[in-house]
Amino acid sequence: MKTLNILKETTLLDWVLFVFLLIMSISGFFFARILSANQSDLVTVEVKGKMVYRLSLLQDTTVNVKGPLGTTVIEIKDGRVRVKDSPCPEKICVKQGWTKHGAIVCVPNKVVVIIGTDNNRTLDAITG
């Protein structure tokens, strides 16, 4: 009963907003999928926006990159990538674990690992 009372307080525009945001985020998933449709086995490692490594997902390797905080260790194995070790305080990039597509981002150490897409920045023009 109590939840029903709370739902009664919501307005039509609330739900219009809710559905609008839901549709926007879900269509965003598909948009991101289309972006990654030209999936390749390319792994790009960038520090502070500058590319430092171009690697292949198919070749097992471990590389060290130097960021502002120290050395981030990136490991490629069995067609997957992970950040094995990072000097950042929260270790979010390490906790993300093995990743097959998309990206791993370490904000504190300014390291970005992109899987799949080539180094195209053409979208900058559309989104401003």
Binding site: S25, I26, G28, F29, L35, E46, V107, T117
Partner: peptide
């Protein structure tokens, strides 16, 4: 802010944005 100051990769932001917005809902 993450894009302008830290990541500087629009495609990385595009991958993360839908998930972040969805969780935000």
């Amino acid at each position: 802010v993450a894009y302008v100051l830290f990541i500087k990769r629009i495609d990385a932001v595009m991958y993360l944005a839908p998930l972040i917005l969805f969780l935000g809902i």
